[in-house]
């Protein structure tokens, strides 16, 4: 009787353990995020670390962000034109490309590219520092790892990813413009005018706000998982993988939430 009861309850117990584990992880990440944010505003500050993070998160991500946006904008224009043809709505290509890129694809794709490029590199770097005792060395040299490693990266993510999203939006729209004017027969002047007339300030603000949120998530996940790394090469690998997975899922979830906040009437 008791064995049968045990068999029945085992899956429920496993489910309960997973749920508790998930809640504990959310709690740990939240506390880590609040502590990291508080260090952004409290001295000492490390301007060189911040400048290096700006360079890594922002400037060095430009090529991958630009190419992603360019190809996506072009493909989007082709899709809208092909789909619009079915009910004689080809003329809306500039408007739909603009709204699609600025509201959704620009921020989301930039966020995912940052998760792939920056989150992974932050996690691997900090995890390696953890494994090779460089984090302990920082502490013995009277330097708070949260201030020196996490705060500059978080601040860079918050500030520079919106700028990357803006660049991505412009290049994405330009990709649509190139395809539309080059092979779909649109006139350049009217394409630009239609795009400009259709976009609102709220579209642009939502795009930049999403960029800030995604930049925060991407850098936070890199730092958090790097700091939590286990031992050895396997520990570094696991931390890197977990950071990218968590960043990508959280970015998509945050995108849904923010879209709801901005556009659900």
């Amino acid at each position: 009787m008791s064995r049968a009861l045990y068999r029945l309850s085992a899956p429920l117990a496993a489910l309960g353990r997973s749920a508790l584990g998930l809640l504990a992880a959310i709690g740990r990440v939240t506390l880590y995020a609040f502590e990291a944010l508080s260090h952004i505003f409290r001295p000492p500050f490390y301007p060189r670390e911040f400048a290096a993070a700006l360079l890594n998160v922002g400037w060095l991500s430009l090529p991958v962000v630009g190419l992603t946006a360019l190809f996506t904008g072009g493909a989007l224009a082709l899709q809208i034109h092909a789909g619009g043809e079915r009910f004689s709505a080809e003329a809306v290509v500039p408007q739909i490309v603009a709204i699609g890129i600025v509201r959704e694809l620009g921020p989301v794709l930039v966020g995912l590219m940052i998760a792939a490029r920056v989150t992974s590199s932050i996690a691997a770097e900090i995890a390696t520092m953890r494994v090779t005792e460089q984090i302990d060395a920082l502490v013995t040299l009277s330097t708070h790892p949260m201030k020196y490693l996490t705060a500059p990266r978080l601040l860079a993510g918050l500030l520079v990813v919106p700028a990357l999203v803006a660049v991505g939006d412009v290049i994405g729209i330009y990709g649509g413009f190139l395809v539309s004017t080059g092979s779909l027969g649109f006139a350049p002047g009217s394409y630009i005018q239609n795009t400009w007339d259709f976009l609102t300030r709220a579209d642009i603000a939502s795009s930049l706000a999403k960029g800030a949120a995604f930049g925060f998530i991407a850098t936070l996940m890199g730092c958090y998982h790097g700091m939590q790394s286990g031992r050895g090469a396997q520990g570094v690998g696991r931390a890197t993988k977990a950071s990218v997975e968590a960043a990508a899922v959280l970015i998509l979830a945050a995108n849904f939430l923010l879209t709801n906040i901005f556009f659900a009437a």
Binding site: T128, M129, T132, E133, Q134, D136, A137, T140
Partner: peptide, 10 residues
């Protein structure tokens, strides 16, 4: 402190 592996910042 001198660490076992040096722990120099790469």
């Amino acid at each position: 402190m001198l660490f076992q592996g040096g722990a120099l910042f790469d």
